[in-house]
């Protein structure tokens, strides 16, 4: 699949935004030990909504005919893309009202309404992030996406990036020990599922050129593709990168997204620079991960263009 920058930025930025919002709501409603309060929490909540909004705006750049984008909320019952849009829009009033309550409450203990709003926002953020993953995971045509680890990775990587922002936001404050533990724990789990995903998609599976054309008792090879230059199908689905380059990029992804942040946080004393460095590495690593997510996906239409298997 062609790795479109608009979709990569959308999933990266709004994924981090939803992850951050999920953690803030959890901390507000159930007190997971981040001890965020006052201006710090307000600023982090605004950052999360900004990231979400920038990401969603990036996603509209992927549309060839954005004037009809408002229609995307109508097929909620069947389409994950539609569900993602509905959840994303539904989240705004709850999140903004929650932010208003939090802001006006100041350093006072959270009220019941505030906690209720935090729980609703939490569920909507999880639903949106899960739907983003399911947009890709529900496609039977791309075996690298059509598995349970796709939405799991989207959720975990979003939470991981959110936690790394929280750590920068706390900046040596009261809850920074638990925030550091949270970043380390989420990074380790996200790394495990992502590495498992890399193993899963390495297993040969799915249709072959033989079953695609119905000639299953003999070899089949492409003689001529029937068009002189590229077309929509080759531009969109024909993207291919050398195997060695892909492996290098996987290494870059694992080192930057998971290994370096963990090493930085474990081996250096707590300081804002270490936290910022860990966050930047995590964002860069997940950017590479998202790029690979598209670049490694092989659509079955490639079988008709001569690929022996996907």
């Amino acid at each position: 699949m062609f790795p479109a920058l608009s979709v990569i930025c959308f999933t990266l930025l709004s994924g981090a935004g939803y992850g951050l919002l999920i953690l803030l709501c959890l901390d507000n409603a159930f007190d997971i030990g981040l001890a965020l309060e006052g201006m710090r929490r307000n600023i982090l909540a605004i950052v999360s909504l900004l990231l979400i909004t920038i990401g969603l705006l990036c996603s509209t750049l992927h549309l060839a005919n954005p004037k009809n984008a408002w229609r995307a909320f109508f097929r909620f019952r069947t389409s994950w893309l539609s569900r993602e849009g509905v959840f994303a829009v539904l989240l705004y009033p709850f999140a903004l009202f929650w932010l208003f309550m939090v802001w006006s409450n100041g350093v006072m203990p959270a009220s019941g309404v505030e906690k209720l709003l935090a729980v609703v926002t939490f569920f909507l953020a999880v639903a949106t992030l899960f739907s983003t993953g399911m947009i890709y995971a529900c496609l039977k045509t791309i075996r690298q996406w059509n598995n349970a680890l796709t939405p799991a990775n989207y959720l975990l990587l979003g939470l991981m990036l959110g936690a790394s922002i929280v750590l920068v936001g706390i900046d040596g404050g009261q809850g920074s020990t638990s925030a550091e533990k949270l970043v380390l724990g989420l990074t380790a789990i996200a790394a495990l599922t992502k590495i498992t995903y890399f193993y899963w998609i390495g297993k040969p599976a799915g249709p072959t050129i033989n079953s695609a054309l119905g000639f299953t008792r003999a070899t089949v090879r492409l003689l001529d593709v029937g068009h002189g230059s590229g077309n929509f199908l080759t531009d969109e689905f024909g993207f291919e990168l050398a195997r060695t380059r892909l492996l290098w990029l996987r290494l870059v992804c694992i080192v930057c997204a998971f290994l370096l942040p963990i090493l930085l946080l474990v081996s250096f004393d707590r300081s804002i620079f270490v936290n910022i460095a860990a966050m930047i590495f995590a964002f860069f690593g997940v950017f590479v991960e998202r790029w690979l997510f598209f670049a490694e996906a092989r659509h079955v239409v490639n079988l008709y263009h001569g690929a022996q298997r996907t």
Binding site: H62, L63, A64, L81, T141, F232, E236, F237
Partner: peptide, 27 residues
């Protein structure tokens, strides 16, 4: 054609390569 927003999602879901985006109309 009056409702399509050109998101390419249907083309991703089609295994037969039957759908093509018209860059001019965006549909």
């Amino acid at each position: 054609q009056d409702k399509c927003m050109g998101c390419n999602y249907c083309a991703w879901a089609c295994p037969y390569g039957a759908r093509e985006l018209d860059r001019e109309s965006g549909t």
